[in-house]
Amino acid sequence: MDKQNKHKSICRQRKEREKQQRIQSILDAARTVFASKGYLKSTMDEIAMAAEITKPTIYLYFKSKDDLILSLILPLIAEIRVHLKKLEKDLNSGKIHDGRDLVLGIFHAYYNAYESSPETFRVLQLFQQKDLLGDFKPEIRSALDEKGRNNVILCRSMLTQGMEMGLLKKVDVYALADIIWGLVVGVVQLEDCKNDEENNHKLKIGTLGLAQQLITEALTRLE
């Protein structure tokens, strides 16, 4: 590569890095604003101010506020799926020997997503509020519903398999999957109200630990 082409390549790489940094700064700002003010009350002006850029600059990368929230939530849903797929692989390969490990694995898949990005997890909680769903464009709502539903289906599948293997007591798998997800989301939301993040998440860890214990004991006492 001659010097001129090398220089052009370096410039393109620098511009790409700057572009990705700008996109990330916008996403970081949106995550903070959404988590603190809620989706409906948040504005693109506030996100621009938090990112220290102009509002027209945001529109160079994101078409709308819906596009922003989609860009935030989808990676989190994908991360949950990665954890669940690893758990499924362990289950299929015989590495999971009892129902307790299976149930704890599902709990951990959800909570690990919270730990990796608490603010994005809170944005996901906002999305699940019934009154908010109608404010999304149909295509945005459909994309989020599909990805989230795939994770739920995978969770149900593993729980069903655990029951068929004799690791878990046979119960309504639809209800059980909802209970586990609802516990994680509910406990996180409740303890966040107590500023648990400032206390190194001790309340969340303790409360979820007890919930896991109660559920696993109930499900693994096979008759």
Rank of each mutant, 00 (worst) to 15 (best):
I26N: 00
L208T: 00
F136P: 00
V188S: 13
T120F: 06
L203T: 07
I179R: 05
K130H: 14
Y114M: 10
I106R: 13
K137A: 12
Q128M: 15
L102C: 02
E198P: 10
K147G: 05
Y110W: 13
D135R: 14
D90E: 12
Y111M: 08
Q4M: 12
I77E: 08
K89W: 01
L167C: 04
H83D: 09
T32H: 06
D98A: 06
Q4K: 13
M49F: 12
R17S: 15
I106N: 04
V188C: 13
D101A: 09
I205D: 11
L133Q: 15
L84I: 01
K169E: 02
E119M: 10
I96D: 01
Q4C: 11
E88Y: 05
C155W: 03
Q125D: 03
M165E: 05
V173W: 06
R31K: 10
Y111N: 05
L144V: 00
W181R: 14
D2E: 08
A113F: 07
M44V: 15
E16Q: 15
T220N: 02
L222M: 07
A113D: 04
E146R: 14
A48N: 15
T43D: 03
A50D: 04
H108A: 15
K85E: 05
R31C: 06
S64Y: 02
V171P: 01
L214F: 08
Q20I: 11
L126K: 08
N112M: 15
K86M: 13
N92T: 04
E139C: 03
M163G: 01
G148H: 07
Q213S: 15
A211T: 02
T216Y: 05
E46M: 10
A29D: 01
L124C: 06
D192A: 09
C155N: 08
V173Q: 11
Y114F: 13
V123N: 01
E191K: 07
E88G: 02
P138Y: 10
N151G: 04
E18I: 07
K202L: 12
D192S: 08
R141N: 03
T57G: 12
A109I: 03
G148S: 13
I10K: 13
G134M: 04
V33R: 11
K65P: 00
S117M: 10
M163T: 01
K8E: 05
F62H: 09
I53G: 10
S64E: 02
L76E: 01
N151M: 11
L104A: 05
C193S: 12
F121N: 03
V123C: 00
L183V: 03
V187I: 03
Q13W: 13
E115Q: 13
L154K: 14
L144H: 04
P56E: 10
F34S: 01
S142E: 09
S42R: 14
S25A: 15
L60E: 15
I10G: 06
N5S: 13
T216G: 02
K19G: 11
G186Y: 04
D192T: 07
L104D: 11
Y174D: 14
V184K: 06
I180N: 04
K15P: 02
A218F: 13
H108D: 14
R122W: 11
